[in-house]
Write a protein that binds this DNA or RNA. Sequence first.
RNA 1: GGGGUCGUAGUUAAGCUGGUUAUAACGCCGGCCUGUCACGUCGGAGGGCGCGAGUUCAAGUCUCGUCGGCCCCGCCA
Length: 603
Amino acid sequence: MSETLVLDRLDDWRRSHDCGALRASDVGSEVCLMGWAQFRRDHGGLIFIDLRDRGGLTQAVFCPEGSEAALERAHVLRVEYVLAVKGRVRLRPEGMANPGMPTGAIEVEVTEFKLLNTAATPPFPIEDRIDASEMLRLKYRYLDLRRPKLAANFILRNRAVQSIRRYLDGLGFLEVETPVLTKSTPEGARDFLVPSRLSNGSFYALPQSPQLFKQLLMMSGFDRYYQVVKCFRDEDLRADRQPEFTQVDIEMSFVDEEQIMLMAENMVRTMFKEAADVALPDVFPRMTFAEAMRDYGVDKPDIRFGLKLVDVTSVVRQSQFQVFAKAELVKGVRVPGGAALSRKEIDDLTEFVKIYGAKGLAWIKIKEDEWQSPFAKFLSDAERAGLVEAFGIEVGDIVFFQAGAADMVNAALGNLRLQLGERFGLVPEGSFAPLWVTDFPLLEYDPEGKRYAAKHHPFTAPQAGHLERLAEDPAGALSRAYDLVLNGNEIGGGSIRIHDRETQKAMFAALGIGDQEAEDKFGFLLRALEFGAPPHGGIAFGLDRLIMILAGAKSIRDVIAFPKTQKAMCLLTEAPGEVSLAQLRELGIKLRTRDKDKDKDKA
RNA sequence: GGGGUCGUAGUUAAGCUGGUUAUAACGCCGGCCUGUCACGUCGGAGGGCGCGAGUUCAAGUCUCGUCGGCCCCGCCA
């Protein structure tokens, strides 16, 4: 970069087209383009510069026919310099067209240009093909976002959000904003806290979702509400989880689950069509939670391929193989053609299932003349016949088994199934398989707290008669909740809510939330329920995940403009950061050094 | 809280069992070039291997610690 270069002012120059707009039909027009220099090809007496903006790339030619002066001056131009060029659109010479780019038939013969800004050499090239480390990309996120492939994700995201807004607006939904500074809730994820200056010692919490506010809006008579809204959860990150993320939050009054699901299904279908021209099925298939766990081992099945799990507990109940005979649950998955797996690959899969608490991985390779397996010798003829029957075993298959506690067996085999689907190329590229999962249990056992907690949230309505069932069969009581799953990802979930005070109090009681605590934490809700709360329910979509899947991105970070790292840090701004003592004093906060740091100080 | 993996010129990577002046490509700087499009061509500069200890005659190479990126388990109603 040369510091001595004189920059030009924009003055009265106005952009006539974006850099992706011009075609052969524009030949002859005088145009003005503005953008960044993508590549420079300097031939001495002739210079090509590809000018880039959000719209695309156009080749600008600096040549004597256009302007000797411009050509002379253009030698100083470098990559990422910001330019405005005026010139004539002309057809490229015979045989020089570039069919690889949309504007490849033409070029702009520069008659005059302005150097609007210079640029330091970027830390990584601004190209789709590059593979700079994510650390560097996040530090210079604004440069990363110049890359067309990444920018395309945000263009897609915009189209998706506009489509959703159009759809909901068309149905008479009211977009209402809810507070970001709100009250901490005891259940659920860890809250992000914001200290109060005006009430020292008290804290706001950032919302994990606008759940209670949207219910209150139903009590306000805003019978159809939606919001595209940031939510915050202070939990560990994953490829598909950020501490702040966006929900499309929806709530309706005077409806049952059927109406909400149809509305939501139609919204997603419309959005896929409008934003990405993807046709989703006319009717989304449905499955109960129990079926999902039985056949897929997870509550968010990827139904793009088979390999269903099979419960063979009863087949091997009397087996000589003690691992099977004594297990709470024994399930298996048959992989057609899987007998070709090498010992190494099976070892790798064994390591994989150990992540989920499995002790090992039992398998049988079905050979022409025998069952090759570490434990086949324990199997009686009856058991073999039972397994053949249960799995539909054929020669060339491999069957994997898992035995033990039900949760572990399902988690291990459910995730093994996904792994196998990948390994055997069973997942069709570019296909989208939505699925409703319904009839969730109301409660979920928390082994750590040794109690039952709400599976969805404590405002979820029980199915008819299931509130009564809670006492004798807490695990069997079902709720009126539903999830929308896409390609094995949970993209949305909701429920019909409790809308009468007595049921809500009974639910709190069932969750072990006492009267006093219920009053302290949710008094405002219980009071609101006394003043004529309508029956209502809703759904919330994880917008980032939805766009991630639609864009074919591997991480949610690729569809969030300024995402955080796995340690929840922003490498661009270096947030979170320390604050001054004065700021802390105003908030009535005194930091204490953690024990770990104390030791370090002493050392 | 735990498991895995990675960290070497501006960037992406190579560097086997520890051993002369740490390689390459791209980028960068300078020269030449009128049809390139990841232009070509000639020449040049640039790092001491994330950080800190240790072992050793000798450490990108081994050990320990630490910081950071990514993936996962737990967690995420």
